[in-house]
Design a protein around this nucleic acid. Sequence first.
DNA 1: AGTATACCTGAGCAGACGCTCAGATGTCCC
DNA 2: GGGACATCTGAGCGTCTGCTCAGGTATACT
Lengths: 135, 135
Amino acid sequence: MTTPARRPAADQALPDPDARCEVRCLHPQEVAQARAEQPGPADIEAASTLLKVIADPTRLKLLSALRTGELCVCDLSAVIGLSESAVSHQLRLLREQRIVTVRRQGRVAYYRLLDAHVTTLIGGVLDHLRGPVPA
Amino acid sequence: MTTPARRPAADQALPDPDARCEVRCLHPQEVAQARAEQPGPADIEAASTLLKVIADPTRLKLLSALRTGELCVCDLSAVIGLSESAVSHQLRLLREQRIVTVRRQGRVAYYRLLDAHVTTLIGGVLDHLRGPVPA
DNA sequence: AGTATACCTGAGCAGACGCTCAGATGTCCC
DNA sequence: GGGACATCTGAGCGTCTGCTCAGGTATACT
């Protein structure tokens, strides 16, 4: 959405110096628009939390391993080469974010992916890494 | 891919105790498959770095603000309510990850989104937050 | 009952992260 | 040239994070 007024416009976009709402800015109009369309702080925080959980290398390995199907904790530990304790800690975060779910059978806990969004999301990241920039 | 052999099968799946490749696991076959389909460490690390850059609340606000069009540093500073120094630091990370690009006009630096992937990616995250789990 | 197994959880510590502060660079205007 | 401005950058510090270690809980087997 390239706005028509793309030029600097700093000379005439600042009618009076006293109009500085909070801090100085060169394009008050576009700043006001950007502020209006900004998501709420709660949404930002929630999105950040979810993305941080997915962003960790260990948890990325866990999610990638679970693409093939459900696995138990000690299997996951063997796949990614980390202690069962560490895996259990990370799986808890993935459960809290509703990314994986658990099915308990006896003393074994089978984990599987809960959300297809995450899979496509990681796919999009890999697209970004490999291919050139689309737009 | 629910394998037919879902039962514990630990007694006969471990022919000899010495066969423990690295660590113990309940389903060696599925572990081997998951390990085979696991992305390379470099890909995991790159995806993690990219996602971490996007996951930070401040940078999420910056990216969200840039959806409306290109903005300069002090504008971005005004939109998200943070010092220009902090904004500049974060923009550097976004540049390094090829998420935003800069167009310099005189002493003003105009930043804009470089990759449509990121926009759709954030949209996917918001979908995950709002809607119920699709699959 | 008693032992072994699979998993979970709290404490503690090394490393990474994001902000502020101070200074440097490059550009515009007089 | 001199000053103001927009931006960039390095140092430093408080905070957060992810691992290991030790112990706890629940289930299966003899």
